[in-house]
């Protein structure tokens, strides 16, 4: 009697495999592109646009996959705009001291709860602190947490996924059951308990979030490795005596980078959102360190008297996360032109 869950998982794995194989093969060989472009009206391989083919035919014959991906990324208008906006937001928060004459903790009891004005772009809070300054500084922490979590989670997830996919067998089974376990726990509850255990600092928050963000990378990378491990180049590496470790990290990993980059970009967005939720509920990073989440927590009871204190940090989160998500979508299209339009 075949086991339904196994069957289900096998099907999922097959799907992931198919996807992974797609992403490896659908970036057509530059030669093919050039050849097709030479003949007017020739049938282009799917996923290749005319302009690119023309460019290739016009003499730019050598283009790396990275260059091709970049050219495709540039076509995704929303992603390009998002990239620019995100860079502005990052520079803005890093250059906060240059953009504002206040400090984030400087109080001014003579002007509490003032609405937005030329003096205070985003108004002031109960203690007369400049809300614009606080949003800028809050962005530093929120962005730092977002990127740090994505990087750490990607390293953990890619390693686990690579090992599971490469070795297969009982090790794969064990690692994937652990992954499923992590995926099925009530996320926010566990984060709250975790922050109670570790503490409310920036580093603690990064650690806790990272522990619950690696599962998606693990699954994706496993799928890719599963489909890649029988390929000739892996065979060749093995025959020439390369160690498993070398094959996993030096031979196979570069081929899995596209989907990994996409997954970790989306993880940045999710981590920024989650940090804000945790801080908002009072379990994340605590004041006086401002983050977009705890700024909103502070302002929660002032919503009626000072709506600007709610409005601006929320918009900051929304725009940042939206930009990161669009960039992730653009990257996906760039690395996986076949899957276009199936985003999110």
């Amino acid at each position: 009697m075949p086991d339904a869950t196994e069957e289900f998982q096998r099907r999922q794995a097959l799907k992931e495999e198919a996807k992974a194989e797609g992403s490896l093969h659908d970036i057509p060989l530059q030669r093919e592109v050039a050849a097709a472009a030479d003949v007017p009206g020739a049938q282009l391989p799917p996923g290749v646009d005319r302009e690119l083919a023309d460019a290739a035919g016009a003499g730019i014959v050598i283009a790396s996959q990275r260059e091709l991906a970049w050219r495709r990324f540039k076509k995704h208008k929303a992603a390009m705009v998002s990239g620019v906006v995100l860079i502005i937001i990052i520079i803005g928060s890093l250059a906060a001291p240059l953009l504002t004459s206040y400090t984030f903790s400087e109080t001014d009891v003579t002007s509490p709860l003032q609405g937005p004005s030329m003096k205070h772009y985003f108004g002031t809070d109960t203690l007369g602190r400049d809300a614009f300054t606080r949003v800028l500084y809050g962005g530093r922490i929120s962005l730092l947490v977002g990127f740090a979590v994505a990087i750490i989670a990607t390293v953990i997830g890619a390693t686990i996924g690579a090992i599971a996919g490469y070795y297969g067998g009982w090790l794969d089974n064990l690692l994937m059951r652990v992954t499923d376990l992590f995926l099925s726990v009530p996320f926010l509850v566990v984060l709250i308990l975790g922050s109670l255990l570790l503490g409310p600092g920036v580093l603690d928050t990064v650690i806790i979030l990272s522990l619950f963000f690696w599962m998606y990378d693990a699954r994706i990378v496993r799928g890719i490795y599963l489909s890649m491990k029988e390929k000739e180049f892996v065979e060749a590496a093995r025959a020439s005596g390369a160690s498993n470790r070398r094959i996993i990290f030096r031979e196979m990993l570069p081929n899995a980078m596209g989907p990994i980059i996409v997954a970790s970009t989306l993880a940045v967005a999710a981590a920024i959102l989650t940090e804000s939720v945790l801080s908002f509920l009072g379990y994340g990073i605590q004041p006086p360190t401002p983050t977009w989440g705890n700024l909103l927590d502070d302002a929660r009871n002032l919503a009626v008297s000072a709506p600007w204190l709610i409005l601006f940090p929320g918009i900051a989160i929304l725009i940042t996360v939206l930009c990161v998500n669009y960039i992730g979508d653009g990257l996906r299209d760039a690395f996986d032109p076949q899957g276009q339009g199936k985003s999110l």
Binding site: A269, L273, S276, V277, F280, L296, R300, A303, V304, P307, I310, L311, P313, G314, I317, L318, V321, L322, V324, N325, Y326, D329, L344
Partner: peptide
């Protein structure tokens, strides 16, 4: 995209307001 990028606790506060 906007829905997925929205901090829902913020959206809730705005709706309340």
């Amino acid at each position: 995209f906007v829905g997925l990028s929205m901090p829902i606790f913020w959206f809730a506060l705005i709706l309340q307001l």
